[in-house]
Amino acid sequence: MNFLRVRGPTLPNLLFGTRSLQTSRLWLEEASVAPSKTNKQQAKKKMLRDFLRSRKQAREPASNHPLYMKVPDALRFLRAVEVGQPRSQQTITLTTLVISEKGVPPVYGNVQLPTPLRNSKVVVLSDDPKKLEEVQDNFKNVHLVGGRELVDKFKNEDIEIDFDKVVATPDILNYTNQNLGKMFGPKGLLPNVKKGTVSENLIELMNENVSSMPFRQRAGCISLGIGKVEFSDKQILENIIATREAFLNTLSNQKTKKQSTLGKTTLTSTHGPGIVIDFI
């Protein structure tokens, strides 16, 4: 027996209010496929309005914001929130809004923090004793410094390998590769031109690699860990100032016609609230 199916109001549809005719849905789909000219213009206007509003807000002083606090007060609250948390989860983060027009490339760069979050242990290898002395004078937290005699010590396993990075000058590179290739290679410690751990100028190399932290604009803001809860107020303020200088320096070097500007800046911790602070 054949049943004829009729599309029309059925009992369950009537009871539960489902519409059997789907005209409105079809109309909506059509509208989303081909937006009208006025819709496009409206969206464009809205974007411009939002941009102008956020730029106006960025020019206002931070103290107008209801959540504004001075940095020491903000830190007092953040330290209170983080009480009892493990040290690895007590990072203080600075987030800055970046107001840029459409099509402007994202802001990125490096900051060298006066008090870094983690002291990485670095070994410096060079045949030139003058360069090594220079490194020792400039970087007091450098782990080990030496020439071929240090390489021999590593080879004979006189020194424990408990460091994070090895940088070297090109003159000692061959000797290092021959003697320490098998030992350092698998651990990723061997100095390498491609990695950017080999250069004649060791100071520049140390600045680029060791204590600097990269930052990059993502989703309209730059976010950067600038300290731990146990840092003193002075250390965190110094880090904030260094970050500010690095941000402004990067903005001034932007290769666009319309420069981006920095907006509201908040200080927060891993479990804490975001507190607005003075930054620009």
């Binding site: 007092r76 609250f77 330290r79 209170a80 929130v81 009480v83 009892g84």
Partner: peptide, 10 residues
Amino acid sequence: YLPTLQFYNP
């Protein structure tokens, strides 16, 4: 209670 205790005894 500990956050308040830490807040007034930084």
